[in-house]
Design a protein around this nucleic acid. Sequence first.
DNA 1: TTGTCGATTGAG
DNA 2: TCAATCGACAAT
Length: 215
Amino acid sequence: MGRSSRVNLDRDALAGPALDVAPLLLGAVLVSEVGGVRVACRVTEVEAYEGAQDPASHAFRGPTPRNEVMFGEAGHLYCYFVYGMHWCANVTAQQAGTAAAVLLRAAEILDGEPAARARTRTATPPGKLASGPARLARSLGLTGSHTGLDLLAAGSPVRIAELAPPGEYLTGPRVGVAAAAEHPWRFWLPDAPSVSAYRPGGRRRAGRTRQTGQP
DNA sequence: TTGTCGATTGAG
DNA sequence: TCAATCGACAAT
């Protein structure tokens, strides 16, 4: 075909390391028809999570019922529950047998904003409805029940509609991640208002006495 | 079976 | 800066 503004969307493109797949997903259009409501968004920020080599990955310690889908075929949805109240969504990468996933951290709503707004806090500013992984998942109505969905299947209620041509992007350390914090495995589009703010990882220490650390 | 901690968010 | 809130998983 002639010069298409889109990139061929085939599973092989997603079947590599998360580090390679993550930038591919920047600018991708994601469509959700969960609950009979259509919400479309454009991905602006992602993070790569590998398998056995990545201590911050859910798959680091091998397969479990929760992370099973990460070990499957690329291009499927992996949603996990965190902090007792939030869902976050990933796109699986690598070939079957090897774990990897790309966390969807932020997006801008292209279509169905009223529906997205209805799902999120009414106080959320318009451009920030899908800013942050939990808000992104909530805007699209994604929960653990959607884990395993094939994002490349035409009939899937959640799917990747198109990939954007490779473009400029920035990288930095992953947000809220303590392990392997030195790796710049977060990718985002420049000048995207929806991109979330960086926050270093690290656990809160219980009973941390007034450790001001100040002289 | 128990305890710790988390790929976050929003309020104070 | 901190509480909310509960599932996963490692350690008993």
